[in-house]
Design a binder for these strands. Structure first.
Lengths: 135, 135
DNA sequence: GTTCATGCAAATCGTTTGCACAATG
DNA sequence: CATTGTGCAAACGATTTGCATGAAC
């Protein structure tokens, strides 16, 4: 049986916050961002609501290989770039290659539902400040 | 200054275990696998050695989007398929597209060092037993 | 009024770490 | 013998959960 949801001011603001940024924030960042407006806000609530938003398919969870989850309110398919120096995640504009899925499917017999491409390297900011590296 | 390593029977067996399988095991799996041979083995040791093997570039850590890390002793570049039903990870034979990195780099000005493609869907086993789904 | 959401704190769980002792070079 | 590895148990850190109270419908 279907789960039903009731509106909550906190969840609406969490979604709004995610939609207003392109930085793919962590739960903690969202929490810190909203704390001034909701002095009693707890991290548990942020996590619970992020999970609900993901269930509702209004938000995507992206695992960037680091220890925390990041969230993205952009729902159209796109690829990501992860800066290995500062951890920033950047949305890429290159078109999504749907033929790739058919190709793998045809060659392997696997049922492919989706795919993900992540690029890793240095963002513009970190290219400039490359003197930071200790060695 | 460079870190130096001393040999250890445990680490050698951990690497050997990883090389003998294609299942991209978790730390826990490796631990359970070697426990009979090393009755005093501890999970901490397995984790410490996996980290060392990754530092030595003998093993790769792959983050499959689930909660635990998996490890892969295959070092040549290749893409992965993750079964959404059973969690299995399968190595794919399709060639790695290096031109893709140049293309993104050219369009964005980002320095691209590597990229990763993961496909998600149903493996052959899970396609057959699709009656498992509750709805 | 029944159901879902909140805040708080405690619990969970994969992974890391401090320490005393053993193995390596 | 100086350094690195081990086992054990405690610590960590991101996320989840139980519970009593509050908001939504």
């Amino acid at each position: 049986m279907e789960r039903t949801y009731k509106r909550s001011r906190q969840r609406e603001r969490i979604l709004e916050t995610l939609m207003q940024t392109t930085t793919h924030p962590t739960a903690d960042w969202v929490y810190a961002r909203l704390k001034p407006d909701f002095p009693d806000l707890s991290l548990g609530t942020v996590y619970r609501n992020l999970n609900i938003l993901v269930e509702q398919d209004l938000v995507r969870r992206i695992d960037n290989g680091s220890s925390f989850d990041r969230y993205d309110a952009r729902r159209d398919p796109h690829y990501h770039f992860v800066c290995e120096q500062c951890g920033k995640i950047i949305d890429l504009g290159i078109p999504v290659d749907t033929a790739l899925e058919d190709r793998v499917s045809g060659e392997t017999g696997l049922v492919i539902k989706r795919h993900k491409i992540d690029f890793f390297g240095l963002c513009q900011d970190c290219q400039t400040q490359s003197g930071i590296r200790p060695d």
